[in-house]
C-alpha cells in the first residue's frame, strides 16, 4: 500500500531495463519498496536490473519478458502481475527508444515502429494496468514523457511527436481517473545521460538518471501531477512553446 507520504511498497516497471526506472526504484528501496516486477524486452537487461535491485535491498524481484507492442497480451500481463504482487502501488512506464530521425534514414516502417514503442505500446500498457488497478481501488501510474514532446523539434520529430502523443494520453487518462483512487504523474525530463542517449550530443540543461529519479520521488511526495527534470525546464519550455516556428526550426541538434 502507498503511504501518506506517497511512498510505494510494490512497483511494476514497464520497460524494466530503463536507467531512470532503475535509479528511481533504488531510491524507493531506501524507503518502503519491498517487491518489484520488471517487464521488458531484453532478458539480459532485466536480469541485470533485478540483480541491482536485490543488492539495493528489494526483497522480491521478478522479471518477465513483455514487449509493449504486444498489445494483445497487455491485459493478461497486467492481471498476472497484480496477482503476483497482491496490490500494485506504483506502475512506472519507462518503455521507449530514441531512434535516428533524420529524413534520410527513416522509412515508413521505422517511423511506425518508433511511434509504437514510444506511444501506442506504452499507452496500451497503461490502459491495461489502469483497468486492472481500478479493481484494486488505488494506484499511482508514473509515465516518462519528455520535453521533446512538449515542443517537437526538427532533429527528433518522430520520437518527439510520439512523446507528445503519450504526454497527451497521460493527461487525459489522469483526468479520466479523477476520484477513482488512481492517478497519473507525468515526468518530463530534458536530455538525460543514459544508455538511450549514449553517443548523442548533450542538449543544454542536461541531467542524469539519478537526478530524474530524485525528481520523481519528490513528485510522489508532493503529490505532483507533472514533474520536470530539471525543474527549471518548466520555465524554459513555458517560453519556448511560444517561439514562432520560423525561429524554432533554427534550433540546432
Amino acid at each position: 500500500m502507498n503511504d501518506v507520504t506517497g511512498m510505494p511498497q510494490t512497483a511494476v516497471v514497464i520497460g524494466g531495463g530503463s536507467d531512470i526506472a532503475l535509479a528511481t526504484l533504488r531510491l524507493l528501496a531506501k524507503r518502503r519498496l519491498r517487491a518489484v516486477v520488471l517487464l521488458g524486452r531484453s532478458a539480459e537487461a532485466l536480469n541485470e536490473a533485478a540483480e541491482q535491485l536485490r543488492g539495493a535491498g528489494v526483497e522480491e524481484v521478478t522479471t518477465e519478458i513483455f514487449d509493449v507492442n504486444d498489445f494483445s497480451h497487455a491485459s493478461e500481463v497486467a492481471e498476472e502481475t497484480v496477482a503476483r504482487l497482491g496490490t500494485v502501488d506504483l506502475v512506472l512506464v519507462a518503455a521507449g527508444f530514441l531512434g535516428d530521425a533524420s529524413l534520410e534514414v527513416i522509412d515508413p516502417e521505422s517511423v511506425a515502429h518508433m511511434i509504437a514503442t514510444n506511444f501506442t505500446g506504452p499507452a496500451a500498457a497503461m490502459t491495461a494496468f489502469s483497468q486492472r488497478l481500478l479493481r484494486q481501488g488505488f494506484g499511482r501510474i508514473v509515465v516518462l514523457s519528455s520535453v521533446a514532446g512538449v515542443r517537437v523539434r526538427r532533429s527528433n520529430f518522430v520520437y518527439g511527436s510520439a512523446k507528445a502523443g503519450l504526454d497527451g494520453f497521460a493527461q487525459g487518462l489522469d483526468d479520466a481517473l479523477v476520484k477513482t483512487g488512481l492517478s497519473v504523474m507525468i515526468v518530463r525530463p530534458g536530455f538525460v545521460h543514459s544508455k538511450m542517449t549514449l553517443g548523442l550530443k548533450a542538449a543544454p540543461m542536461s541531467t542524469t538518471p539519478e537526478a530524474v529519479a530524485g525528481a520523481i520521488v519528490k513528485g510522489l511526495e508532493s503529490g505532483a501531477s507533472v514533474v520536470w527534470a530539471p525543474s527549471s525546464l518548466m520555465w524554459v519550455f513555458g517560453i519556448l512553446v511560444h517561439l514562432p516556428r520560423r525561429l524554432w526550426r533554427l534550433v540546432p541538434g
Binding site: 507520504t5 506517497g6 519528490k218 511526495e221
Partner: peptide, 12 residues
C-alpha cells in the same frame, strides 16, 4: 502538512 520532501525521512 504533507508534501515536504524531507518529511518522510524525518518521521522514519
Amino acid at each position: 502538512p504533507l508534501g515536504s520532501p524531507s518529511l518522510a525521512v524525518a518521521l522514519d
